[in-house]
Structures are given as structure tokens and as C-alpha cells.
Design a protein around this nucleic acid. Structure first.
Lengths: 247, 247
DNA sequence: GTTAAGGAAATTGTTGACAGTTTGCATAAA
DNA sequence: TTTATGCAAACTGTCAACAATTTCCTTAAC
């Protein structure tokens, strides 16, 4: 089974033909949201977006429909599309789901573990160990992403892969919104070792447990960090971002 | 801003305003797919759909974009939208995911179980018991759906609820395509009792295990049934549905 | 008989325009 | 000053038309 998706081999012809205007617009809006260029809660002005991207409103509207289904924006009839606002409750939801899917991926992979899988995973853990020891969050973070993505990919379950990556994107949103802190790198990587060990032993139940708990620990760290934050500035009431326009 | 408005007296106006043409079209196409009126693999003729529903192509295209993100249709640039074909591999994917999400829901609900939760769940199991004893699949099936949906709903995790219900819809598709058989009702309900028992004991790990296994058993029954089917008519090669038009 | 080429028809991609609704401002009344 | 009212601008919802691409049928060559 080929579980490694070709990164970007020959996007020459295929890329141009695969990318309709709508797809490009969708990708661009998604990028803007993930990059924080579109603040949560603001309304997307269809015409403004269309003019900026040099297209008509049709593709923009189609892209927004897709993004709404993906959960990045919210549609209100006759009002327009609004960038989804993410609350602490949303973070909890995403963490819980991510824990479940991460655990499920490990559980599914455990019985089909190959030597190559083990090699790759141990490679990631080794690299992360180095990053963690030098407290290099910059290099640790993408490795961490790739480690978990690799496990999910290796299951071969396309739906699981899609859902998981969607959650990871939402998770990125929390980072840009400052809801996530850098956790203890060494501690995190120790949990990675536990995951690999369970996979190596082909113990599906254990693999689920340690994987789900790994994400769950991240959730707990976030919640306690948020509580600390609230304690530091207790009377701070939430500011409601009003409607606004892009550009 | 405290608008002391009457709770939810007239959904008539709200309902109309909530439903844009696009939403109606999306719902209608989804219904046609789930009802089997649109066969897998066939192309959706935008103009034909638009004419049938008495709308222009714009809303149809927007609806299709949303349905593509939901996984019901597949978009091929310059070719059109195609109803997703579901294979045995798809069924396995959906089963595995559904097992994971079902397990996750039980795991999340376990620590927050209330007396009312227990009451409702035991009620469902009791009703299913009656249906199972009289081999009344017709009444058992919706009860079974509601039992599981209730557990998922009770978690309060909106994303989990949405994903789970999406999978259930896909699962319905397999039923209409004959990939799923009526399993042993009594056996299935016995597993329901195990789930409720684990939830009652607030044992999250056990709740996950029995819930996930419950769905996993369904998967195994489907696979073995499929194998039997293949054995019965061995040389039957899969017919490739060609492109076609609706109506 | 099979394969290749050409062109017409059908279909999708995209655009601009119009209708209905919402928003915001200005004016007026209390 | 505050609150209501009405009008104008802006925006979304929808549609019909045009452009680009694909599909299909006909014709011709081997």
C-alpha cells in the first residue's frame, strides 16, 4: 500500500486543469483565514474578495459554500459569510475530536505496522528529541505535525485523513489566536515514544490509549494555561468584534 | 442587549428566511442521493437539475460545491459533478471511522452520565428488546439509530455530532446499495446493554471499548456477508456504471 | 472492421446585470 | 440628548448570456 502521498511531483498540466477558479479562490480564502489575515467574526464582502482576486462573485460564492461546509465560515442568509469565531469551547471540541481520531489512527495502524513504518516513526522521534533538547520549538513543531500525520496517513483511511487534517487546520487557528501554548517539548516527545512502542508491539488498545492521552494532555495544558491567564486579568470581559469589511 | 423575545413561537418566518435557494437545492440533491434516485457514478447535469427545481444554475453549482465537501459528490473540472461511487473499501473506511467516533462519544459521555441519560438509554434498549424479540427490523432500525445518536448528542460536542451524522448518512447509502445486511437483532441489542452498563459505571475506557467493538462487529458481519456473496456468484465482475444523465 | 480526424452539439466555467434585503445615515420628534 | 422614521447606499440572492471545453457523431483513411 502506498501511504505516502506524492508531495508535489508534476503539477504542470494536472495542476492547471485541476484548479478551477473556484478552487483557487477557496484555497486563497482558507489561506487568509489560517494566516490570520481575516479576523474571526468579520464579514467577507463578496464583491471586495472578487475584485481583489480579479474574478467575479460566482466563484467566490461557490468557494464560500465549500468553506462553510468545512467549518471555516458561517453563512447567514441575506447577511453574508462570517469568519468563524473560535471560543474556548471550540478548542475543547477540537481537542477531544483530535484525541479520538489520533487514537483511532494508532489503533488501526497497530496491527499493520511494518518495519518501514517503525523506521520512519523512530526517525521522527529521534529528530524531535534533538529539537527538544535544544528547546528548538521552530523545528520541533513541524516534525510533530509530520509524525502524527504520518500515522494517520499510514492507516490508508482517506476519510480519516481528511477529517484529521481538517482538525489540524482548525487547531492552527487556535495557535494564531493565542489559545495554545508551547508545551514541554521533552515531555511531549516522551509520549511520542510511548506511542511508537505501542505500535511496535502491535497493541491496538494500548496504541489508542497512549495516543488519545497524548492529545488529551495537550488539552489539559491548554485549559490550565487559560485558567492562569484568566486569573492574571480577572475582570477582562470579552470584546465582541463587530462587523467589518476586509481590505 | 437583552431582547426579551418570546422563545420560539413562529418558526414559519424564520424557516423561510433560513432557507436560501441554495440550501433547498443542496438538501434536495442530498435527499435524491440518499433515496437512491441518483445512481452512484452518474453525472449531475447542472442545467437539468436547475430546470427540474425551477432555479438557475447558480444555486445548483453552489449546492454541489457544498455537497462535494461533504463527500456526496465528486467534482471533475470541465467534466461536472459525479455521484460518489461507494466500494467495499469505502464501507470499511466508514465502519472504522464510525467505530472510532461511536467509541469516542461513549468515552466522553461516561464521566458526565446523569440519571436522565441512563433513563433514556435504558428506555431505548428496552424498546429494542421488544422489537428484537418479535424480529421487527422495521421498528428496531430507527430505535438503533436514535440510541446511538442520543449518545453522540449527549456529549454536546457539535463537531462530533456533525461528523457522526455525516457518517450515518453515508452508511445509509451502503444500505440502499445492498452492502449492509440485517444483523442479528438480539445480538446487537446485547451489545447495547454492554454499552449502557459501561456508561452507567462511568467507565470511560470500557465504554469506548464496547462501543467501538459494537460497530466493529457490524463491520465484520458485513465483510463476511460480502465474502459469502462473492462465493455464491464467483465470476461476477463489477459493472462499471457509465456516465449518464438524470431524468 | 478498426482507427483517426473533424466539426457540431451539449455542457461546464465565468461574467455582468437586476431584484430584494439589509445597513447606515440623516432628519425629525419627544 | 435620546429615540423614532424614512431614504439612500451597499450588499446579497438570483438569473440569463457568453466563452471555453468536452462529448459525440460523422466521415475518411488504413
Amino acid at each position: 500500500m502506498d501511504d505516502t502521498e506524492a508531495p508535489s511531483a508534476l503539477p504542470t498540466i494536472a495542476a492547471l486543469r485541476e484548479h478551477s477558479l473556484t478552487a483557487v479562490v477557496q484555497h486563497e480564502i482558507e489561506r487568509m483565514i489560517l494566516a490570520g489575515e481575516l479576523a474571526p467574526g468579520v464579514r467577507l464582502n463578496e464583491k471586495a474578495v472578487a475584485d481583489t482576486l480579479k474574478v467575479s462573485r460566482g466563484p467566490v460564492r461557490e468557494a464560500c459554500r465549500a468553506l462553510a461546509e468545512l467549518g471555516f465560515v458561517h453563512l447567514i442568509p441575506n447577511r453574508g459569510v462570517f469568519i468563524k469565531k473560535l471560543t474556548k469551547e471550540d478548542a475543547v471540541e477540537v481537542y477531544d475530536l483530535r484525541a479520538g481520531l489520533t487514537g483511532l489512527a494508532s489503533q488501526l495502524l497497530a496491527p499493520m505496522m511494518t518495519a518501514e513504518h517503525l523506521d520512519r516513526l523512530e526517525g521522527f522521534v529521534g529528530e524531535m528529541e534533538q529539537s527538544a533538547e535544544s528547546a528548538d520549538f521552530q523545528s520541533f513543531y513541524p516534525l510533530n505535525l509530520e509524525f502524527h500525520d504520518y500515522i494517520v496517513r499510514a492507516t490508508g483511511n482517506a476519510r480519516l485523513i481528511k477529517l484529521y487534517r481538517g482538525l489540524v487546520k482548525e487547531f492552527h487557528l487556535f495557535r494564531t489566536h493565542g489559545l495554545v501554548q508551547r508545551s514541554s517539548l521533552l515531555e511531549s516527545n516522551h509520549e511520542h515514544r510511548d506511542i511508537v512502542a505501542a505500535l511496535k508491539a502491535k497493541d491496538a488498545s494500548l496504541a489508542y490509549l497512549v495516543s488519545a492521552r497524548h492529545v488529551g494532555n495537550g488539552k489539559e495544558r491548554m485549559l490550565s494555561a487559560l485558567d492562569d491567564l484568566a486569573e492574571a486579568s480577572p475582570a477582562r470581559h470579552r470584546r465582541e468584534p463587530e462587523r467589518g469589511r476586509i481590505e
